[in-house]
Amino acid sequence: MNQFLQSLPDTLVQGLAIGMMYALIALGYTLVYGILELINFAHGDVFMLGGLFSWAALQHFFGAQIGANYGVLGGGTLVMAIILAFLIATVSCGGVGFVIERFAYRPLRNAPKLAPLVTAIGVSFIIENAVLVWQTGTGNMELTYPSLINQQIIPVLGLHIPSKAIIVFVTAPILMVGLLYLVGNTRMGKAMRATAQDQEAARMMGIDVNRVISFTFIVGSVLAGCAGVIYALYYNSIDYSVGFLAGLKAFTAAVLGGIGNIRGAMLGGLLVGEVESIVDSIDASQGVGLQWAEPAVFLVLMCVLIFRPTGLLGAQVVDKA
């Protein structure tokens, strides 16, 4: 226990880093739910694709340097590689999100709610298995993701911050603030809020609802794709299955904060990250292996939902009266 308390500040820093990752994914769940009341189960897999596509791009353009330096780059090359990774994830995942909505969900827009839900699960399986087939086919069962920056512990104010967490602390807040700005201060954001509150009335006000929905999927998928890059850089590995658990936890985070609520998803993500990190740390100090984090996350979810069924910050309740 003593060991746990001693390392608590560092544990919290680590939780913050993981939590920001979950928050980025949770935002996509919450954006889509807010507008379509659809739980996009394929979202976690879009997150995984972000890591995968950026891995492929890094291998293609920087493969030689990465191989020569054990995954570490420096100077201008490092900056180029990081920009490339995020750019590829943004473009490809944005495209994937658009295509999923256009061809899997839109035809079912007026069908009973269960139909798109089941379709979402189907899309998730398709993506996962397509990647699995590719991984087995090419003999890439374990993809090592380059860490790009030198792995070291940076002491700041008595804390020990791993250098890989710096990437999270720099990129995730930028993306989150960007999203808040987009939704709160732009005309497109206004159209998104209007569509979320009353689709029919929005249509009557001249809003092209289909365009808004497409845009929402693209934005959510871009955030997930970037989270995928961050995840892969953080854990130095990526494979077809990581989207499932990360997606599930991020979805939990969205529900925890109040699904449909953007700030709720951010808060929920951070909370899930902290719980996971703290429980892992307790596990480590007791020497029982890292297995209680997931049950703890879901236990917290259950407790919150018993007392606040709409989540911490309240689900976005559409007032149709």
Partner: peptide, 28 residues
């Protein structure tokens, strides 16, 4: 069927939406 969680001004601005020409990039 107002947009209940938007301000009075924003509700009217949504109505004005169709008259605006600027594109997404300019908007952001």
């Amino acid at each position: 069927r107002l947009f209940q969680n938007m301000t009075v001004l924003d509700n009217v601005l949504v109505g004005y939406h169709t008259r605006l020409k600027s594109r997404l990039v300019g908007d952001i």
